[in-house]
């Protein structure tokens, strides 16, 4: 049974008087992998901002799992969505502290928190980084930590902004298979942006392309 994760209806978003996004009708299906392709500045990151309820469109509405998103419920709905930014920001301190951050916000007990964080590090094969200061991490390592910080919260929807940019070739393959597993075994909805057309096609179930703020199915 196919159901809609997101339905976008007449969405318009401008910044400093410039129209960034203009989407008439668009649906993102639940349990699918969607790739967003497009040039720099086409509006990919803005769309992820809207889908994670961090940005608000000035016109139009978004339905999430059949619920209309409003200012009042977006903070709650945000907890079902995980976002990893293009150049993720890690807070000062060590890696384990970063992985635990979202769990801490959800008032998970410290012991449970640390267990979950260490398991996540094992899954991503970065156990050795646990006590490293974030200052000493490479770009790829930092990206893995940010991915772990999001995955440990077990969100229904996973939004990834250019997740493969800094990753080493070896891990790209592992991460691709992890993404597929998350879809197949846990029925997660995954939306990611990329420049790489080939990767978009091989990894995703559907590819959308954004040009000058307009979204089209490729």
């Amino acid at each position: 049974m196919m159901s809609n994760q997101y339905h976008l209806n007449n969405i318009q978003f401008s910044y400093a008087g410039k129209k960034i996004l203009d989407i008439k009708q668009q649906t993102f299906q639940q349990g699918k992998i969607t790739a967003l392709v497009g040039a720099n500045g086409a509006g990919k990151s803005t769309l992820l901002g809207l889908l994670s309820f961090i940005l608000n469109a000035e016109l139009g509405e978004i339905e999430f799992s059949g619920t209309k998103v409003t200012k009042n419920n977006q903070a709650t709905l945000r907890k079902s969505v995980g976002l990893v930014q293009q150049n993720p920001y890690l807070i000062k301190g060590n890696v384990i502290k970063n992985i635990e951050l979202g769990l801490k916000f959800r008032h998970v007990k410290p012991v449970t928190r640390e267990c979950m964080a260490r398991e996540m590090l094992r899954l991503l094969k970065i156990e050795s980084l646990a006590d490293r200061s974030v200052k000493s991490l490479s770009g790829g390592e930092a990206q893995k930590v940010a991915i772990g910080r999001m995955l440990v919260l077990d969100p229904e929807v996973i939004l990834l902004d250019e997740p493969f940019t800094h990753l080493d070739r070896e891990f790209v393959e592992e991460f691709e298979s992890l993404i597929k597993q998350l879809r197949d075994k846990q029925d997660k909805t995954i939306i990611f942006t990329t420049h790489n057309q080939t990767q978009a096609k091989t990894l995703s179930d559907q590819v959308f392309s954004i040009t000058d703020g307009y979204l089209t199915e490729a």
């Binding site: 945000r78 969505v81 999001m150």
Partner: peptide
């Protein structure tokens, strides 16, 4: 990016302030 990070991880205003 810190603001977006806090929002995306679901921090309340108080938690955001502490961070």
């Amino acid at each position: 990016r810190l603001r977006v990070t806090c929002l995306a991880l679901g921090a309340s205003l108080l938690q955001k302030g502490m961070i």
